[in-house]
């Protein structure tokens, strides 16, 4: 099932399908290693529900909801 990274459950393993963002944000997200095929796991939501903490490539990355919603992920299996 396809959804966006801000809507997944905590601890759920998902695989990035595509990025819907453009410009600086897209570049930044790509540079941080979030590209199609990579596994990302939502680890935590901040106390006010935003931003979100993800595990990507073995490290922790904090992204705001407004940015995470532009990362399209697939929740079925690993591929």
């Amino acid at each position: 099932m396809e959804t966006t990274a801000d809507k997944i459950k905590i601890g759920q393993k998902t695989v990035v399908k595509a990025l819907a963002c453009k410009g600086a944000l897209r570049r930044r997200i790509i540079d941080m290693g979030i590209i199609p095929g990579v596994q990302i796991i939502l680890r935590k939501r901040a106390p006010f529900g935003d931003p979100l903490e993800f595990i990507v490539r073995g490290y922790r990355l904090c992204i705001r909801k407004s940015e995470a919603c532009q990362i399209i992920v697939s929740t079925e299996g690993d591929r």
Binding site: A24, L25, R28, I29, M32, R60, L61, C62, R64, E67
Partner: peptide, 9 residues
């Protein structure tokens, strides 16, 4: 504003 994409070391 630059995007808020921050590593949690």
């Amino acid at each position: 504003d630059t995007p808020f994409v921050m590593e949690l070391p």
